[in-house]
Design a protein around this nucleic acid. Structure first.
Length: 588
RNA sequence: GGGGGCGUAGUUCAGUUUGGUUAGAACGCCUGCCUGUCACGCAGGAGGUCGCCGGUUCGAGUCCGGUCGCUCCCGCCA
């Protein structure tokens, strides 16, 4: 018996053919006489029929068949009678009348039915991932992911990129995320770190003269998980020599265009819009703006800085910021709805959410009485208040005001159903600040990473006004989600040393941690830059899934454990001894 | 590190507010019947450590304390 077709490809035009299908039993319907089975493989589902009058032997054998049995069947493709077509199935015009049945495997009753519409809990699904992965939806996702990765390889190969592997057992880097450590047996007491990204290696490859590199590569970060974050995740990692921002943007826009076309048959328009970080923050409050709807933020700090409403005035006087958002026509929001939005803003540390309902005869608002008529007029004009509008204000530090109001903007759009889920709106965010100040550690930190080039025109501010140095970093944002980011790198040793120094990394530490890079930079380094996409997130968006776990074959739980294999687990005494590792309990 | 939700039959859930007889439903499973179903139908049946540990009580799925797990979010994630 040799398989001739898959379960998704037979059509009315195949009627009369003798075929052999192999797959799993999706569902069995036994009528006492005739038995119908929905037969599934990765190609789809076809109905197979056991008829005691047609083939008594195979019908008899079919009595024992249950869900998820694995079968091979030989039979003839028959057109179904006109009144028995199933237009919900791709193969609904035909069925296979079985002449010969081979039962390859019996199966225990599955813990949950292998069907898309069944919603088993996530932990059950992960524990029995082999069953979960049989569900057509997950099969589709994993296949779409494959299509995407192949499209990416093909596209980059054609542009002269080389796929070059980089080490997993590598060196811990300061800055950035927590590392996963791997103990060394042959060098006891020493540890490798799994790479958070191949950043330094790809720069080394540029210095080595490979000019165009890519890798679809696993990266590891020991941080807390989210619906869109796993401890090991996949990047589409790229680096190019002799290029500037425009080259990289053009190539990666083409990459995205190709992937969306091949995976979803969606035409993405290029080039993408570009917006600076400063403009994104001003208009949307976030560095990853969702441009599918308007409702932009409005800075009113200058208007309220001397107002009688002390909360606003004092925030501005202390270097804070007051911004507003106009929920057009939302005057009918109840007190309860406004309270729930206030709670929402509080998640992002906003201490309150002031509001104004714009009525025909004036403002209805707890804060209206604090404003003079003149202030009211100026505010109304700035925020474009019209009768029926509902205005929200947040007053806090610039960071909190922007974050809270930016998130509120997204939340309002969701609640007001302003978002067309079939729209794909891409935008580049550029000119990120090079540094930010870490209040906890009392020092500057790289916003992107320490190898990002400062904007040339801002170089002189590195000593005098470091926080206002802009960088040559850029993020690709899709519908309010960052899907990729990168930068033009520093290619001069002097500048690299200077930036490391600004970051408070001593010369000694710099040479210990990055000496190899600094040496390499001095050996003749081409100008270079690159970008990395979060492949899992991209796949998630392509598959229209809510969780990254639905596009990863074997994902981990929020506690970073694998319910299938039960990793992580205790190591044996002998193993630990070999590594000279002793496990100690840490008391609270 | 912090906040929210969840944990009861194989699965999804109700029951927990207000402690009280034998813990229910649907789907799935098993048995029988059924020759055109496609979420087949009909009849019958089995199936429970109410996550775990401890406490209060005459009595705990229900109240209290602890603990474990899953999930969403904040912090964190250059």
């Amino acid at each position: 018996m040799r398989r001739t077709h898959n379960c998704g490809e037979l059509r009315a035009t195949d009627a009369g053919k003798e075929v052999v299908l192999m797959g799993w039993v999706q569902r069995r319907r036994d009528h006492g006489g005739v038995i119908f089975i929905d037969f599934r493989d990765r190609g789809g589902i076809t109905q197979i029929v056991f008829n005691p009058e047609h083939s008594p032997a195979s019908h008899e054998k079919a009595q024992v068949i249950r869900s998820e049995y694995v079968l091979g069947v030989r039979g003839k493709v028959l057109l179904r009678p006109d009144d028995m077509l199933n237009d919900k199935m791709d193969t609904g015009a035909i069925e296979i009348m079985v002449d010969e049945l081979k039962i390859f495997s019996h199966a225990e009753t599955p813990v949950f039915p292998v069907e898309d519409r069944v919603e088993a809990s996530e932990s059950i699904r992960l524990k029995h991932r082999h069953l979960d992965l049989r569900r057509p939806q997950l099969q589709k996702n994993i296949m779409a992911r494959h299509t995407a990765s192949q499209a990416i390889r093909e596209y980059l190969n054609d542009l002269g990129f080389l796929d070059i592997e980089t080490p997993f057992l590598t060196k811990s880097t300061p800055e950035g995320a927590r590392d996963y450590l791997v103990p060394s047996r042959v060098s006891q007491g020493n540890f490798y770190a799994l790479p958070q990204s191949p950043q330094l290696f790809k720069q080394m490859l540029m210095i080595s003269g490979f000019e165009r590199y890519y890798q679809i590569v696993r990266c590891f970060r020991d941080e807390d998980l989210r619906a869109d974050r796993q401890p090991e995740f996949t990047q589409i990692d790229m680096e190019l020599s002799f290029v500037g921002e425009d080259d990289i943007m053009e190539i990666t826009e083409g990459l995205i265009k190709t992937v969306f076309k091949k995976v979803r048959d969606i035409d993405v328009n290029t080039p993408f819009d570009r917006i600076t970080y400063a403009e994104a923050m001003e208009r949307f409050g976030l560095d990853r703006p969702d441009l599918r709807f308007g409702m932009e933020l409005c800075n009113v700090s200058d208007i309220v800085k001397d107002t009688g409403f002390k909360v606003f005035a004092s925030v501005v006087k202390n270097g804070g910021m007051v911004k507003a958002i106009n929920a057009k026509g939302c005057i009918n929001f109840s007190r309860k709805e406004i309270d729930s939005l206030t709670d929402f803003a509080a998640i992002y540390r906003a201490k309150g959410l002031a509001w104004i309902k714009v009525k025909e005869d004036g403002w209805q608002s707890p804060i209206a009485k604090f404003f003079t008529q003149e202030e009211k007029d100026v505010l109304a004009k700035r925020i474009d208040m019209e009768t029926g509008d509902l205005i929200f204000f947040v007053a806090d530090t610039p960071q909190i005001t922007n974050e809270a109001l930016g998130q509120l903007r997204n939340e309002l759009a969701r609640r007001l159903d302003l978002i067309d889920s079939n729209t794909y709106r891409f935008v580049w965010v550029t000119h990120f600040p090079l540094l930010e100040y870490d209040e906890m550690e009392k020092r500057y930190q790289a916003l992107h990473h320490p190898f990002t080039a400062p904007l040339e025109e801002d170089l002189d501010k590195l000593d005098t006004d470091p926080l206002n140095v802009r960088s040559r970093a850029y993020d690709m944002v899709l519908n309010g989600t960052e899907i990729g980011g990168g930068s033009i790198r520093i290619h001069s040793q002097e500048l690299q040393e200077k930036v490391l120094k600004t970051l408070g990394i001593s010369e000694e530490e710099a040479h210990e941690k990055f000496g190899f890079l600094l040496d390499a930079l001095a050996s003749g380094t081409p100008p270079h830059g690159g970008l990395a996409f979060g492949f899992d997130r991209l796949a998630m968006l392509l598959c229209q899934e809510e969780s990254i776990r639905d596009v990863i074959a074997f994902p981990k739980t929020q506690k970073a454990s694998c319910l299938l294999t039960d990793a992580p687990s205790q190591a044996g005494v002998a193993q630990l001894q070999e590594l000279a590792i002793k496990v100690v309990k840490i008391e609270e």
